[in-house]
Amino acid sequence: MKIHSRLAVCSLASLTLLLGACSSSPEQSEDHSATSETTRSASADSASFPRDIQVGDNSVHIESEPQRIVVASTDGASVLADLIEPERIIATPDIGDKTPSQATKITGSAHVDPEQLLSFKPDLVVLTSRHGQEKDASELLKQAGVPTVSFASSAWSKIDSIEDNIRILGQATGAEEKADEIIGQMEQKRNEVTSNLKRDHKPRVMILMARGGTKMLMPANTLLNGLVREAGGSAVIDEVGSQGVTPADPEVIAQLKPDVILISDHKQKAQAEFKELLENPALADVPAIKNKQVKYLPENTTGASSGSRCVEGLKTVAEDIGTL
């Protein structure tokens, strides 16, 4: 289904300046022998360096276990906060309750300054390339001899991708066993949801978001749309065929007729931001609005920065769209 009237599509670049948001990175594994049949000791982890890890199409050489890690994106920061000791993270964006207290707070991937990152004298930098400046920063960091794990912007859009990234960062930091433990816990929770989904019901779901006063349909390659698909719903953004920003125009919403509307509750302001739009008389007969199926979802479990919490988001989404 294509929407032709009043469907303004902006460039993907303009979206990513508004979003901190996220398909999959290739899973790579290395065989590092354990020193016992139980948990490998920290000294054994350290002894497994130097090592080369694969991140997408790039190989990253890491000489020794990193102790001065700078992370320049909230998605990577959320994963590292679960994987390693907080004192090893020396600079990070704010990720709420998981932010290491002693780390210097930086603005994150929307404003990556390679000189600032280098000033911390890092032995590992982690970032996600959402804008051109991150790609430039990644190249400059490599030229300076700093090992840099740079994820593609699409690498945080579904649970499989996030698990791949946890494995990669586990390899990069010598925390493979912790990574496996986290993924095992995620899979257990994930299976508890997917094994109980109602497969005879496939609601059509629209996801809305607001950034800087602009209301829009959340793009197809974001985690929340990925969670909708895994939870057994149909993401209506897939019908639009847009690769950029689709404004949340009343005519577009009325034509798409979603059964459920999910709204990303950015900074817990979404109800106020969307009140006028949802009360527009032109939307009165939209099934989601007529049947009071409009839900607000927290970003800490359904956004790209949710890390391992994304499986909690999967359960919330399934419950909200009526498949669980």
Rank of each mutant, 00 (worst) to 15 (best):
I168L: 04
A254D: 06
L314M: 04
Q188V: 15
P114D: 13
S33A: 15
G108E: 09
T222L: 01
L297Q: 05
V205W: 09
S161W: 02
G303A: 12
E187W: 05
A210R: 02
S43K: 07
V294T: 11
E273G: 02
T301F: 05
A210I: 08
S195I: 09
I207Q: 05
S109E: 13
H131E: 12
L283F: 13
L224C: 08
L208P: 01
K315M: 10
G56W: 02
L197V: 11
E251V: 09
D123A: 06
H266F: 13
V193G: 05
A34I: 14
S154A: 14
L217R: 01
I166W: 04
K295R: 05
K202N: 09
D164Y: 10
Q54P: 06
K269T: 15
L17F: 14
K292N: 15
G170H: 02
A42K: 04
Q188M: 14
S161R: 00
D136M: 12
D259M: 00
A179H: 14
L227Q: 01
V260W: 11
Q143C: 04
I69P: 01
V311T: 08
L117R: 00
L208T: 02
I69R: 00
S11D: 06
L12R: 12
S25C: 13
L227D: 03
N196R: 12
R190D: 08
L314R: 05
L262Q: 01
S23C: 09
V252K: 02
K315G: 09
S150G: 08
K189T: 04
I263V: 11
I53M: 04
T302S: 03
D123K: 00
G56V: 04
H131M: 12
I263N: 01
N196L: 10
Q28A: 00
E299H: 09
K315W: 07
A21G: 10
T148C: 04
H131S: 11
F120Y: 15
E319I: 11
D75H: 07
R204N: 11
S234R: 08
E230V: 04
W156S: 06
A254H: 06
V55N: 01
T104K: 14
E239Q: 14
F49Y: 03
G170N: 02
V55L: 04
L256T: 12
P247Y: 14
C10L: 09
V311R: 07
G174E: 02
C10H: 09
K98L: 15
L324P: 03
P93T: 14
P298H: 07
I159K: 11
E181F: 10
E312G: 05
N291T: 10
E65Q: 15
L262T: 03
D94P: 03
